[in-house]
Write a protein that binds this DNA or RNA. Structure first.
Ligand SMILES: [Zn+2]
Ligand SMILES: [Zn+2]
Ligand SMILES: [Zn+2]
Ligand SMILES: [Zn+2]
Lengths: 134, 134
DNA sequence: CCTGTTATTGATAATGATTGTCAAAACCAT
DNA sequence: ATGGTTTTGACAATCATTATCAATAACAGG
């Protein structure tokens, strides 16, 4: 049976309070900084569970680290992520869903899944960085 | 100055002969099996260089491992990958390019890049696995 | 409220990919 | 062929993640 522990709840809350994606290590550090004695392995386990049940979304950073985020949307969706500040926008992409299905079908592929993420600079970061550079 | 060594050439050729994506470790094993005494670190370096110059394409496997492939198309493109046999199809996706740009622009993002990969079972693998399962 | 069963925790070791180190070897213009 | 410079490769180091396993805590039943 699945038991409720303060550790799982702590991870869930910490993830909720986090803007954008965060790594297991970083979330653990954050929790420790807040005085929580939660163990690192437990954070990994909790994040894995949340991702498995769909309560959190995960993706691989370009550096190969797994990043997690508490999703507000329950269904299938994608992300538009600021590579500077981490701000993340959840986006529906019916257009891409259709495209992905068609591409797979056209080539005889079945059971198609896809990875679609857009990275860029959010308006805020664009303004700041442009001011400095220009 | 950039020098030419048999090691770099060996990696390039091994990558060319490989169908689908392959990891640095696997390529190193493959080279060793063929009698090449090339070092592991060198394979990592060569693959990194090839990816940097655009001669090879790289992506992160769901397990976080970096995979490489010799690309036949020079420009920007995406992949349709068989999760069973590794067969890879390069696909152009003007539709998705437009979509990605629009999504970024709609939200005020600039300098948008994107990761778009489709994973599935190729026709061949579908037939084989369906025969076994059904 | 106790209590036993059993899932969960967490310190730590183990794993596995990738990168850093640095002396020795290879490359190439001269 | 020679020398300055780049590249190599064996090995150590790093870093994220997973496995271990005894100790702990959740919770159903009494
Ligand atoms: Zn930003
Ligand atoms: Zn989708
Ligand atoms: Zn296949
Ligand atoms: Zn594209």
């Amino acid at each position: 049976m699945k038991r409720n522990t303060w550790q799982r709840e702590a991870v869930r809350e910490a993830l909720d309070e986090t803007e954008g994606f965060i790594s297991a290590q970083a979330l653990h550090s954050s929790l420790h900084a807040s005085g929580s004695p939660i163990g690192l392995a437990t954070v990994y386990r909790a994040l894995g569970d949340l991702a498995a049940t769909g309560e959190a979304d995960s993706l691989q950073s370009p550096e190969g680290e797994a990043l997690y985020r508490a999703c507000t949307t329950t269904g299938h969706h994608h992300h538009l992520i600021c590579r500077n500040c981490g701000l993340t926008v959840e986006i529906a992409a019916d257009e891409v869903e259709v495209w992905a299905k068609r591409v797979a079908a056209d080539h005889g592929f079945t059971g198609a899944a896809h990875v679609v993420d857009v990275f860029g600079l959010c308006a805020n970061c664009t303004r700041l960085l442009t001011a400095n550079a220009g």
